[in-house]
Design a protein around this nucleic acid. Structure first.
Lengths: 112, 112
DNA sequence: TTTTAATGTCGCAAAAATACGACATTATTT
DNA sequence: AAATAATGTCGTATTTTTGCGACATTAAAA
């Protein structure tokens, strides 16, 4: 029932990135890493209202998207943001929306 | 089981916008409207690999997010992009990621 | 006024995402 | 070598998303 293969790769790629940041927990992780520069996984789940294994899964999604990276340090893992992945995402986002923005209209009210 | 109320409103709002654009069909609709400036719902579903009622639901999500607007014109509905909504989203996005970008590291390879 | 046309909405089925406990893995410590 | 500690992974229940056909609504046409 998944018809998303029918769409352009450009759209699918941007949609994939968007999905990654479409959960507040993953945004919170990104924000946390931006503030602490680098940290371990345990630290992160302590600061979130979620269980450790759940946070671990969110970390995996961020990793798979190339937005973060985990460096093994003994028993712990130091996570950090990947500027490359983030810049790619931002470029993709801007590349799509900058042209779009100029074609909008004024329409605050009314929802048919 | 939904714990997303536990997160900051800033994160939840950005996550909501991200979710709206996290499907290629909705991105395709945005792109289509940006190209044609204004058009009717039928035109849109003709150019997508989805049924009409499905497209109608995607349109509703874009409307609810304030990204598009539909003006009733007799039996048809002219859809257009709302620059306001799009700019708000872009501002939110940049406001979150611009600061984040400067705190990233170089990490292309390796996924623990 | 009946018919036709263009959309929206509802209800359901299938799929995907989310959350978490239990277990697996790996590296220190003792 | 055994115990401990930090993390990842699996199984699974719950929720959310997706897609579509059937029906509802509204406006133009005949």
């Amino acid at each position: 029932m998944n018809k998303s293969e029918k769409f352009d790769e450009e759209l699918r790629e941007l949609a994939r990135y968007a999905k990654v940041i479409s959960h507040p927990a993953r945004l919170a992780i990104i924000k946390y890493l931006a503030n602490t520069r680098t940290c371990i996984s345990g630290d992160i789940s302590d600061s979130l209202p979620l269980g450790r294994s759940t946070v671990s899964q969110h970390l995996k999604e961020l990793r798979d998207a190339g937005l973060i990276h985990g460096e093994i340090d003994g028993l712990k893992i130091n996570y950090c943001l990947c500027s490359g992945g983030i810049e790619k995402f931002m470029a993709l986002f801007s590349g799509f929306f900058e042209p779009v923005k100029t074609n909008g209209f004024d329409c605050e009210i009314s929802h048919p």
